[in-house]
Structures are given as C-alpha cells and as structure tokens.
Amino acid sequence: MKIFVCVKQVPGVSEIKIDPKTNTLVREGVESVINPNDRNAIELALTLKEKHGAEVLVLSMGPPQAEEILRESIAMGADKGFLLTDRAFAGADTLATSYTLSLAIKKILKESDPEEKYLVICGAQAIDGDTGQVPPELAEELGIPQIAYVLSIELNEDKIVAERKFRAVEIVVIETKLPALISVLNDINKPRYPSMAGILKAHDNSKITYYNAQDLNADEAKIGLNGSSTEVWKIFAPERKGNRVILRGTLEEIVQQLCQNLKDDKIL
C-alpha cells in the first residue's frame, strides 16, 4: 500500500499581522514551517505504516525552498519526498493546487503499480489560507471518496472506518473503501520529532524527486494563476468596532452602571 501525504510550507502566521494605522503587513521574524495539521497527517501515515506496512510518500507543491519540509518529513520517518516546483505553478488557488497534486499522485502510481491500493492523507487546513478546500478537491480530481475533518481512523484490508467531526458536539462514524482520501484535525495524534537516524536519512538526495509542469504533463490552463478561478482583490486589517465605554467608580458603582446600561439595552 502507498500512503500519500500532502504537505505545505507556511509562514508561522501568528507573527504576521497588519498595522492598523498604516494598513501594511508586519512580518517580523516570521519563519517557514510545515503546516501544523500536515504534521498530524505525517504522524498518522507513519503510525499506519508501522501497523500495516506501507510506503509513505510526501508531496508538496511550492517554491524550491519547500524542499526543507520534505526533508523534515523524511527525518520524521517518511520514505520519499516529491517537490512539485515550477514558476508556472505560482498563483495557484485551491482548484489549481489540487489539479497539480493529483497529476503527481497519478504519475507516481502509474510508474509503480497502478493497481496498488492507496490512501491520501492531508492536514484539514493550512494556517495561512485556512480554506481546507484542497483535500476534497484533490479527492474529486482523483475520483476517490473522501472523509474530511477526521478525528480517528481504523484501517482493515481495503476498508477504512473513520470518525469525522460532523457538528459542534456530534461525530459521525463513516466506512469507505480504498483508495480514499482523508483530511485530519490536530486532535488525531501528537506528531513525533525527527529521529537522529531520520535526520541522516533526510540528507540523502536520492530520497527527493522534483517535478515541474512538463514532468507532470500539466495542462497550462489548469495550473498556477491561469488555472485559478479566485483572485485576491485586496487585503486589509480587520476592523474593530465597539464604543469603548470604560466604567469607572467603586466596584459597586461599576456593577450598578453596567446593569443599568444592560437594562437600557433591553438585555437584562
């Protein structure tokens, strides 16, 4: 069995913000990391490999420096990394990204054993875009069932049974057949740290394969900016409303004022 894990290099977003006065981005000391949910995806793949035996192949679409996160994945225990990198991939929205990832998965399957069963694991969403759209779109492109927002999974021969977050307090248990795609939430496991042996393995250049648009035989109208239906029109700082009345006085006076205000607002 092959387990494909799709990962994304993201900026550590909590440091990125917009200065509300100048409406410009502040990016002090932002470094690039593996998207946190994608670490959970790698961890799950490695756990399934240990239990059932599988080849864990990690894919990422991104600029050349995204190679770093593939090496990190290998250091955690993945078998191989595939970097899909080409200027033509830039500007991709989720439609173009899922198309490009699907081409790589199809190519890898075709060049090994097309009949081999496989599972695709993605992080539920990336912390920069937060869309969570690539996993279902990738499943659609591959023509396989998906289970999104997975909290736990059991693999049994060619069947998977997964618990999926369904509503605020409800979980639904779903069974489907391989090949399939799942996207995982961070509650599913605790990602491991790279091992010493893994870090040595990650330096082995033969573990990483590079694909450009031509290698993937990609349709130019479906990749990068050309293949994207959505466009960023503008970005800005979140607006903050509120009338900011600070209540003052003794504790009793403050509580009295608050309750009076809430009565006036017809809340109490």
Partner: peptide
C-alpha cells in the same frame, strides 16, 4: 493568516 489579515 489566522484572522490577522482580511482578504477580499
């Protein structure tokens, strides 16, 4: 970006 930026 985690709610730090709004995009249209």
């Amino acid at each position: 970006f985690g709610g730090n930026i709004m995009a249209t």
